[in-house]
Simulated scan of single mutants.
Amino acid sequence: MIKNNVETIVEGNKVIYKRYFDVPTELLFEVWSMPEHLSEWWGPDGFTLTTKSMDFTNGGIWEFIMHGPDGHDYKNKIQFTDIKEPHYIYYKHLGDGEGDQDVHFESKIIFEGAGEGTNLTMEQIFPSKEELERVNEKYGAIEGAKQHIGNLSKYLEKLK
């Protein structure tokens, strides 16, 4: 496991990101599950977040807007499919919920205790390898996810 950077593995239609965090599993889970934390770190570099609504339960919906550094707003809708505190969060990204945004994938966020810290695995599964390539080319998805995890790391440093 790479301790300071994000290990990234691309396998067909999925991308797996791994990183060790020097914080307890419960804290890492908490910052993935509460809007007041998510607004401090969610998204790639330069993005900010506004949560419209969040039902953090199995089957619950999280609607939010990512505000890009270019001034563009990106509506997003996520449905939580399986949550087991503090072990994992599985969800489906449903685009913008209005049919305009064409990005659909599933994510598995896995938190595994490792000594005093936590190993995080974030897996994104796209409908096909071609869809992953299209989304990456159009939106810079892989680099954006690495920045997303980097911003999480910066936020956790502030909480220590």
Rank of each mutant, 00 (worst) to 15 (best):
S53E: 15
G140H: 14
K138P: 06
K160E: 09
K146D: 12
F21I: 04
I9T: 15
D73C: 03
G150L: 11
S153Q: 13
K160L: 04
K129N: 14
T118Q: 08
M34N: 14
W32S: 04
P69V: 03
G71R: 02
H67E: 03
G140E: 13
G71V: 03
E112M: 11
L49A: 04
A145C: 15
T50W: 05
E85L: 05
H67R: 00
H93D: 09
G115H: 06
G95W: 04
K18S: 12
G113E: 15
I9C: 08
H37D: 02
V15S: 01
N58D: 15
N58T: 15
I78L: 12
L159T: 02
G95T: 07
Y20F: 15
Q124D: 14
S33M: 01
E112A: 13
T57C: 14
M122T: 08
F126R: 00
T118H: 08
F56G: 05
N58Q: 14
T57E: 15
L49M: 12
L159M: 10
N5F: 04
W32Q: 03
D70W: 07
G113S: 14
G140Y: 13
Y74V: 06
K158Q: 02
Q101D: 14
I142A: 11
G12T: 09
K146N: 13
W32L: 02
K129F: 11
M34G: 08
E137G: 14
K18R: 15
W62E: 05
I125L: 10
N151I: 05
G71H: 00
V135Y: 09
P24K: 08
G113Y: 06
L28T: 07
I109N: 10
F47G: 01
E123N: 01
V6D: 10
F111T: 03
F56L: 06
